[in-house]
Design a protein around this nucleic acid. Sequence first.
DNA 1: GATTATACCGAAAACGATTTCGATTTTCGT
DNA 2: ACGAAAATCGAAATCGTTTTCGGTATAATC
Lengths: 340, 340
Amino acid sequence: MKPITLKDLALKLNISVTTVSKALKGYSDVSKSTRDAVFALAEEMNYTPNSVAVNLRTRQTNTIGVIIPTIVHQFFSKVIDGIIEEAEKKGYLVITLQSNESVKLEKKQIDLLLNKRVDGILISLANDQKEIKHLQKVINKKTPLVLFDKISKSLVCSKVVINDREAAYNAVTHLIQSGCKKIAHFRGPLNPQNSIDRYLGYRKALEDNNIKFDKSLIYTCEDVSFEEGYKFAEDIYEKNKDIDAVFAITDLVAVGAIAYFNENNIAVPNQISVIGFSNWFMSSVISPSLTTVDQPGYKMGKKALKLLFKEMNAQKKGKEFIPETIVLPTKIIKRNSTLI
Amino acid sequence: MKPITLKDLALKLNISVTTVSKALKGYSDVSKSTRDAVFALAEEMNYTPNSVAVNLRTRQTNTIGVIIPTIVHQFFSKVIDGIIEEAEKKGYLVITLQSNESVKLEKKQIDLLLNKRVDGILISLANDQKEIKHLQKVINKKTPLVLFDKISKSLVCSKVVINDREAAYNAVTHLIQSGCKKIAHFRGPLNPQNSIDRYLGYRKALEDNNIKFDKSLIYTCEDVSFEEGYKFAEDIYEKNKDIDAVFAITDLVAVGAIAYFNENNIAVPNQISVIGFSNWFMSSVISPSLTTVDQPGYKMGKKALKLLFKEMNAQKKGKEFIPETIVLPTKIIKRNSTLI
DNA sequence: GATTATACCGAAAACGATTTCGATTTTCGT
DNA sequence: ACGAAAATCGAAATCGTTTTCGGTATAATC
């Protein structure tokens, strides 16, 4: 009924708890005969060590914490997928928390994880990130920390990101190379670094190709939704019939725009090209299928965890660890919503 | 540097660890003055209890484990979302694991969670579920267990499901009521109870409406993909031009079918109606938007956890707990891929 | 046979908290 | 001022492991 403990084994074998423990852990000062006996009994009684006790004694939990804005989101669930897989390989378990874009919640969750004595924390920040005290606390406590995707530049720790600016630059360049000249940008909210960077990439691409920036072609999403994409497409088309391309902050917004164009017999890509961002699953099954920028979530999760492990190991060996920043490559997934 | 412990506080205050602990926990045999002093110092030194030690002593971890086939899947990430939210409310943390549809992995993971001494386990079974020994073990160890979505009928424990058979029955009835007479079914793999039940619901609906069952209208998906939906749609249309409806095991398969019909100018829903299953996000953004059966993942997660808590509480009080099965209602989300 | 080396084992402390139970002190009625 | 009741406190056991350090017993060496 009650879980078997070392003590139970020791009692049955008439030896000390110490010896049982040492036998099980392969210490050399245990005779073969007692070792065998211990293993046999452990097997028979189905002994499994109590992780909690081990954790207390060894001061490590083999558990890491992950905080993301939301899990119901292709990109983030891919990241989680990558993290969990990689963690399991090394015998680590993953506790997942959602901040729902609330810094307040994020703080609480950091505390929770710290109390749980997780061996490390991975986090993708909530949008309105000015406050970083709670993260500084993590660093001060010497708990390894890696930021991914939505990061804070002012925090000294490891990071895994994509180059949003470059990716956006490439996306818009792709549009320009296919002949587009009047390119709208349905950008993300004003705060997040991601959406700023993509916006800057857009501008840089225009600039490098001698296309004059036109403020009226910029629309700012608030909740980055299908509906916004649809609405903005409608609005911009009514005001600018000669628009010939849309670069959307996200596939979902792009799909919204395509829906409007489809319904109103505006040919995509012949009249208007559309390019999205993220390569969500959905973008391959709509018609026309959506050209987009692949954002490698799975890989990002894996890399982030690997960096975390690196830091954890350095710490174990008492070595100093210098934070690293990994920039993952993105690539354009060419489908049927753009020309060429 | 090192985390503050009760001992540290006790030392500074020149009182015993016992008293510090009792003060913090609000025991009545601590004077107001020392209580205040303790709280003040705890605050000042930023004391937080070491959960691991507490867990060992109290024999509970305030952690639950969840095993799902895969997390990169709208339905399951919604379930996880529901679970995490509900857990957090009660101060519980969630460890998520993916079985990747492998029973072998599932077993390992169960053991991992058991060793971690999680307070309870939620699991949605891998597809080829014949073996249930590892789950029986969980029950034998008196660790509360709740199955959801993909369950095993032969296991005596709480369950949260939808009535797949009835849901499918309603979906097909919807097609029939809209005038469809030759209805194909792109069913799921042969093993999972889900896909069996949906198939049975399909047959029952035909039977109740005096439509002869035609084996040649049944296609069996193996990996339940977009491509399969596309391929099956092509095949069946070439063999049966008079087909007038498709009931697909999943939205993704349905979307694949719609893609084929769209490309070949077969009007959906006027010539052929299509109905899916699950209400994935994607189904609302394709065109025509997909009529489907809503499968309440978020709610399922919440309910499953509530059941788990119920069992955990009963156990704490030493009460007997009788497993419950909750059947969540589904409803048809009428969109534009079916008539009426 | 005395000495040293080797093999094997176990007592005990530690990890950080909780809780029981007994001890001491204070308060108060008379 | 005395005894009883109430208010405070702390020692110690416990949760289940790990690990250090010392102690025996046996084998090897001369």
